Computed example of a mutant assay.
Amino acid sequence: MSPATPQASSRERILDAALLVMRERGLANTTTKLIAGQAGLSEAMLYKHFADKQQLFLSVLRERTPRARFEADSGSESLAAGLATLVADLMAFFTRTFPIAASIFGSPTLLTEHRDGVASHGGGPATVIDGVRARLAAEQDAGRIHADADTESAARLLVGAAFHQGFLAAFEGLDAVPDAEHVAAGIVGMVLPGLPPGED
């Protein structure tokens, strides 16, 4: 057994435990002590892998929740299909993470601490819009969206709609948006007229 194996195993256990505790208690009521206890490890072991709770939270989002593919794949799918897949992925992400993050808004002090913490690790909600905007910019570069199209507003519309659908699903106690692919296609269909193809 290599020396790295126990560390990798403990890191995975911490991430699994963090996801469970955060989903059950919300981020505001989650402590590193609770996570370490759920993982069957010491807090010292937790801090060998993660600098603080905010870094652990971001790692849970990146490694234990549905991921959106922001990269364009213009060779194998239409613009509409690619964006619909992206919106469906975002709805899945928001549905799964809303119960974790919502509790933090009940405490201004904790919210400030959390906001500063995730920002110090390069995270935060705005990164989702940045990812979608980058995806649309790549589509512009590929000539599938006109160079003058308002991709900033389009990114906000796509993310906002996905977030709201995720919120509604989480509010109903669901783990996913019902008929997510159809809902995502409808959202994209309303945004696409504002993203005309590039000129030949």
Rank of each mutant, 00 (worst) to 15 (best):
residue 73 D to Q: 15
residue 74 S to R: 09
residue 75 G to N: 13
residue 76 S to V: 14
residue 77 E to N: 08
residue 79 L to F: 06
residue 80 A to L: 04
residue 80 A to I: 04
residue 81 A to K: 12
residue 82 G to T: 01
residue 86 L to P: 06
residue 87 V to W: 00
residue 88 A to H: 04
residue 91 M to A: 10
residue 91 M to K: 04
residue 95 T to A: 10
residue 96 R to V: 12
residue 96 R to F: 02
residue 96 R to Y: 03
residue 97 T to D: 03
residue 100 I to W: 01
residue 100 I to M: 08
residue 102 A to W: 00
residue 102 A to Q: 14
residue 103 S to W: 04
residue 103 S to V: 00
residue 104 I to T: 11
residue 104 I to A: 09
residue 106 G to H: 10
residue 107 S to E: 15
residue 109 T to C: 13
residue 111 L to P: 14
residue 112 T to I: 11
residue 113 E to D: 15
residue 114 H to M: 12
residue 115 R to Q: 13
residue 117 G to F: 02
residue 119 A to Y: 02
residue 120 S to P: 05
residue 122 G to C: 04
residue 124 G to P: 02
residue 125 P to M: 01
residue 130 D to C: 09
residue 131 G to P: 06
residue 131 G to E: 04
residue 132 V to F: 02
residue 133 R to Q: 14
residue 134 A to F: 05
residue 134 A to S: 11
residue 135 R to P: 08
residue 136 L to C: 06
residue 136 L to T: 00
residue 138 A to H: 06
residue 139 E to R: 00
residue 139 E to P: 03
residue 140 Q to I: 10
residue 142 A to Q: 11
residue 143 G to S: 11
residue 144 R to T: 13
residue 144 R to S: 08
residue 144 R to A: 09
residue 146 H to S: 12
residue 146 H to M: 09
residue 148 D to Y: 09
residue 149 A to Y: 05
residue 150 D to A: 09
residue 151 T to K: 05
residue 152 E to G: 13
residue 154 A to S: 08
residue 155 A to C: 01
residue 155 A to E: 01
residue 156 R to C: 07
residue 156 R to G: 15
residue 157 L to G: 09
residue 157 L to V: 15
residue 158 L to R: 07
residue 161 A to G: 11
residue 162 A to N: 04
residue 162 A to E: 03
residue 165 Q to W: 01
residue 166 G to C: 00
residue 171 F to V: 12
residue 172 E to G: 12
residue 172 E to P: 08
residue 173 G to F: 03
residue 176 A to M: 07
residue 176 A to D: 12
residue 177 V to N: 06
residue 177 V to D: 05
residue 181 E to Y: 02
residue 182 H to Q: 14
residue 183 V to Q: 12
residue 183 V to W: 02
residue 184 A to D: 14
residue 185 A to L: 07
residue 185 A to S: 15
residue 187 I to M: 07
residue 189 G to H: 10
residue 190 M to R: 14
residue 190 M to K: 15
residue 190 M to Y: 13
residue 191 V to N: 04
residue 192 L to N: 11
residue 194 G to L: 11
residue 194 G to S: 14
